[in-house]
């Protein structure tokens, strides 16, 4: 069984937000007190109790009609997940067999490093400071059910299935660019965009922070390479030069001589 993904198609989305409610219902998340800020969009961002939401993007046009794009947002479930890379706690952020990034709150140590590493600003923390985010309804998918958001979507704007099949489907439907096909090890939340990602409020080329990559590729290995190297050099010195002794004692001449000879 291959990796599974969620395909988001804003061209099919009608902004009804059934997904937002279904998510809260399945994941037993409370609603928060909000206010209208002159937009349909609410809450203003993902929160520890809002795992997905619809962004409403109004695009003005000097000639003709405006465009109103509905972009469903949630954890991207990166193939190469910065949050998982940086997370210091064993088993706090995990990848399911399907490729979803899930959280074990009992193992989260509230360090919030994931939040600074994530290129999409997904990680949010609950009242206990534990990471709280979309887990692609792993408790549903494990039983063969689609995530709650995809299940409730009336128009097929959210589709869950085999990643390769979804990509093929979107390409067949004429979407030139599948956002997330290759970036960050391939995203688990794919987008079928008609136009430039920027129009939909997305980064053209999402990437992990460079310092994180350096840390991952250099500093982290250096910690054991450096330790090992230092130990090895000490050992080499011990063997090659030997301890620095003031006056050879009577019980040690042979060894000293040996060292001398070898030296």
């Amino acid at each position: 069984m291959g990796r599974k993904s969620l395909l988001v198609s804003p061209e099919l989305c009608i902004g009804c937000r059934g997904c937002q409610t279904a998510c809260k219902e399945w994941n037993q998340l409370p609603g928060s007190k909000t206010e209208n800020r002159g937009s349909f969009e609410n809450p203003p961002e993902l929160t520890a109790t809002t795992f997905n939401r619809v962004r409403y993007v109004e695009v003005a046009s000097s000639s003709g009609d405006p465009r109103w794009l509905f972009v469903s947002q949630r954890c991207m479930h990166c193939g190469d997940a910065a949050c998982m890379n940086i997370c210091p706690s064993t088993g706090a952020i995990n990848r399911t067999a399907d490729g979803a990034i899930t959280v074990d709150k009992t193992k989260c140590i509230e360090c919030k490093l994931c939040a600074s590493a994530c290129p999409f600003g997904t990680p949010k923390f609950d009242a206990q400071n534990k990471l709280s985010k979309c887990g692609m309804c792993a408790d549903r998918t494990a039983s063969g059910l689609p995530p709650a958001c995809a299940k409730t979507c009336p128009t097929g704007a959210l589709r869950y299935g085999e990643r390769e099949e979804l990509i093929a489907l979107a390409k067949k439907a004429g979407y030139a660019k599948i956002y997330g096909e290759n970036d960050l090890g391939g995203l688990g939340t794919l987008y079928a965009f008609r136009d430039e990602p920027k129009l939909y409020g997305m980064d053209e080329k999402p990437a992990m922070p460079e310092s994180l990559i350096f840390w991952q590729n250099v500093l982290k290995p250096l910690s054991y390479l450096g330790l090992g190297g230092a130990l090895a050099l000490s050992l080499v010195h011990l063997v090659a030069v030997g301890p620095k002794k003031d006056e050879p004692k009577n019980d040690e001449p042979k060894k000293d001589e040996e060292v001398n000879k070898n030296g």
């Binding site: 490093l113 600074s116 310092s211 500093l219 910690s223 054991y224 330790l227 190297g229 230092a230």
Partner: peptide
């Protein structure tokens, strides 16, 4: 936070070497 995390690890590496 990310730079602090970087620094923490870099300094740790220095320790591990000396």
């Amino acid at each position: 936070t990310l730079s602090m995390h970087f620094l923490h690890n870099a300094a740790f590496d220095v320790y591990l070497m000396i």
